[in-house]
Nucleic acid binder design. Structure first.
Length: 465
RNA sequence: GGCGGCGUGGCCGAGUGGUUUAGGCAGGGGCCUGCAAAGCCCCGUACGGCGGUUCGAUUCCGCCCGCCGCCUCCA
């Protein structure tokens, strides 16, 4: 069983399931007002790997990730561009899903949108007011943080120390500086929904509280997102749920940053920060490999150099897929470990070691190292003439890569233009005749037009470099 | 000011109280090859600094230095 670090307790612990064999996960998705950046790609990949692994181990996973399509930035940005907020959000949501698909990330089972849940949010806020834990001011409705047991849990700080560090806001008549807004009363020109406090719109991520509980039920197993969401975003979600007497997530998981040049990524650094940019400039699988190579809670460094290294590693896996004719197991969706009763053509010990790594707080780096070890073993066995052994190792590589969502199937053969095909043919003839000078010249020509030339027992093969 | 994290061989990046190594990339030597490519084998004596605990610390503790993040809407 998978053990995961729980942000709320600071300890690695087994996930506690409401019902054996089933797990529900809610991951905070995007606020769609701009193109996604590398950080968005990382969280998508991290939770995709988690999800695929849980499926691999035989669990039934319900995975929900929201789209927040109403918020200050959306309103601002739409106004700047002179378009409706809904037009803006539709555009960027589409960009997001295209990137998700390119990354090989499974689409969530459900994608709730904030704007579809405003009525339910109003109900929640009204309930909180009725319970006396929320109060109305001139500009909105606020949650009284003092009333929430354990506020500060996810900030990893007691209420006292949060209060000490709180920024001073002058223009809001809150009872405590830490109180946060649940409902914002409308300002002119903003999209609004009706409420008992007049027209307005939702405040601090009430949508995530309502949508997660609605779709997954009380005490759903896991809530996740990027580390920056721990506080105040998730803290405030939890506060609302707890204050409303609901049981919220049992377990919290947060992934680390993407850094560029050792610093938290920012647009001003302008290097590889756009997800689309990365996907256009490199093999999309390289980002997954990069993410897998380090622990999900560690920062990862994404630079042209680390991406190139990842691509080189990928080439090694692809070469094995090509050599051993691994089929594309991912084409039919996530894979499940069949265990003892499964395929005798697989290396059960390797699968066990793999699971041991993954069960330990998703040690993907260790799991990946294991996969690379298996690749070397498969190659070695093949070189030594042990075809069945090699096949077994290689098929296991295929299975484990698939479990990680890493597509290393035998790639479709490159289209070879007639001129190149002709050079290959002439090179074979030259080599057969022992005309090495002619053969070398033909290789040089092929390489010049971007081919990688390999001579095998069946003659010359070329592929794109 | 409060809280948290990090510092590993050329680069990236795991891990562990000590006997035999993470892994990838790059590099060197060898095998294979007409020469290559791919693949295989071998190679680097790394763990920020100073103390402490210990028979023994990169791994535990303390201090220091350096870097980074969070403390109200950024994955």
């Amino acid at each position: 069983m998978l053990e995961l670090y729980d942000t709320a307790t600071g300890e690695v612990a087994p996930l506690s399931l409401r019902e054996p064999g089933r797990i529900s996960i809610y991951v905070c998705g995007l606020t769609v007002y701009d193109a996604p950046h590398l950080g968005h790609g990382r969280f998508a990949l991290v939770f995709d790997v988690l999800r695929r692994y849980l499926i691999f181990t035989g669990l039934t996973v319900t995975y929900v990730s929201n789209i927040t399509d109403i918020d200050d930035k959306i309103i601002e940005r739409a106004a700047e561009q002179g378009i409706e907020p809904s037009e803006l959000t539709a555009t960027y949501e589409q960009v997001w899903w295209e990137a998700v698909d390119a990354l090989g990330v499974l689409r969530p089972d459900q994608v709730p949108h904030a704007t579809a849940y405003v009525d339910r949010m109003v109900e929640l806020v009204a309930d909180l007011v009725a319970r006396g834990v929320a109060y109305e001011t001139a500009d909105g409705v606020y949650l009284s943080v003092e009333e929430v047991p354990g506020y500060g849990l996810l900030a990893l700080q007691p209420l006292e120390s949060l209060r000490a560090g709180a920024r001073v806001e002058s223009d809001v008549d809150k009872r405590s500086p830490l109180d946060f807004v649940l409902w914002k009363k409308a300002k002119p020109g903003e999209p609004t929904w009706p409420s008992p406090w007049g027209p307005g719109r939702p405040g601090w991520h009430t949508e995530c509280v309502v949508m997660s509980l609605d779709l997954l039920g009380d005490g759903f197993e896991l809530h996740g997102g990027g580390m920056d969401l721990m506080f105040p975003h998730h803290e405030n979600e939890r506060a609302q749920a707890v204050a409303a007497g609901r049981q919220f997530a049992r377990h919290w998981m947060h992934n680390g940053w993407v850094t560029v040049g050792g610093e938290k990524m920012s647009k001003s650094l302008g290097n590889f920060t756009s997800l689309d940019d990365l996907l256009a400039r490199s093999d999309p699988r390289a980002y997954r490999l990069l993410v897998l190579r380090s622990h999900y809670r560690s920062p990862i460094e994404v630079t042209p150099d680390t991406v190139t290294q990842a691509e080189a590693g990928l080439a090694r896996l692809d070469e094995a897929a090509r050599r051993f004719h691994l089929e594309d197991v991912l084409a039919s969706g996530p894979v499940i470990d069949q265990g003892e009763s499964g395929d005798p053509e697989l290396d059960a010990d390797a699968v066990t070691s793999f699971r041991k790594c993954m069960d330990d707080d998703l040690d993907t780096a260790g799991a990946l190292a294991m996969v690379f070890d298996l690749v070397r073993r498969a190659n070695g066995e093949a070189d030594a003439g042990d075809a069945p052994g090699a096949q077994r190792s290689a098929r296991t590589v295929g299975l484990l890569c698939a479990a990680l969502g890493l597509r290393v199937a035998h790639p479709t053969e490159d289209e070879i233009d007639p001129a190149s095909a002709d050079r290959v043919r002439r090179r074979d003839e030259a080599r057969a005749a022992g005309s090495w000078t002619a053969a070398d010249a033909l290789r040089a020509e092929l390489e010049q037009s971007g081919w990688l030339v390999e001579d095998g027992p069946d003659g010359t093969r070329i592929r794109r470099r």
